[in-house]
Amino acid sequence: MTDANLMTVPDAAADPARRKRSEALYFAVRNPKLIVGGTVLVALLLLAIVGPYLTDNPPNDYVGPKASPPSGDYWFGTTTFGQDVFSQFVHGLRTTFVVGVLGGGIAALIGMAVGFTAGYRGGRVDEFLNMVTNIVLVIPTLAVLLVVSAYLKARGVLVEGLFVGFTSWPWAARAIRAQTFSLTARDFVDLARLSGLRTRRIIFREIAPNMSSYLVMTWILLFGGSILIAATLDFIGLGPTNGTSLGLMMNNAVLWSALQLGMWWWFIPPGLGITAVVGGLYIMNVGLDEVFNPRLREL
């Protein structure tokens, strides 16, 4: 070892935060999975935002010929009743995103708060939170929703999202708790404590980033789950009172025998839409894992 080497502590050490961020960005823009997943998602999101302005047809009005296949006038064709499938699709996509983001977001927030606290604190706190989690887990969600809905006059997308969010967090909490538990046992957490870091900072800056892809994955599953639960609710008449959603579309298609009648344009767009949203998120997640985990990055 020479003195020259010792004299030059790299300047990079001076501002690690900025370097870290630009590094993640560097790998992010070069990760094909992240780009593909992100593109699909952004495209669908844009469609959900812009789509409704591209058509003058209200989604649930009987505007056109009955059961016509896709054409220049009705891009995705019409339903048995002459509703514009394209209009339904873009409006439904919007609803789907709102329910997914809201339901998944609320569930993820509660799940993280409970999971991080239980996993990091351990002991009595953990036992108590675990008990609460298990209680919520075994509550028959659908029955509760039925009862609650009966007392609510107006139901909108927001209410539906809240319902879904407040009932679907327990498994996320359990998953995050387990992950936090195993990370807390690692020595770097002890060293962070020895460095004088506060608990909050240790959880959010040291532990959470290690499971960022896991958290995103959790949120993706909650997102997808919310969409599916919402579709179920729509089907049994607990959905938004006057709206449309991809789930509702699919259920209507099945209800009116689109499958048997060969009206593929009725059920394929919503099915593909749900698949593309969830699939895009999933591919992004794998990509994010590679960006965040330097060990995977090298392979």
Binding site: K20, R186, F188, L191, S195, E206, P209, N210, N293
Partner: peptide
């Protein structure tokens, strides 16, 4: 290997201090 947060460079341990 467990003493370092695997997602950061080793400088992170010094930066915390």
């Amino acid at each position: 290997f467990s003493s370092y947060n695997p997602i950061f460079t080793v400088d992170h341990a010094l930066d915390l201090v």
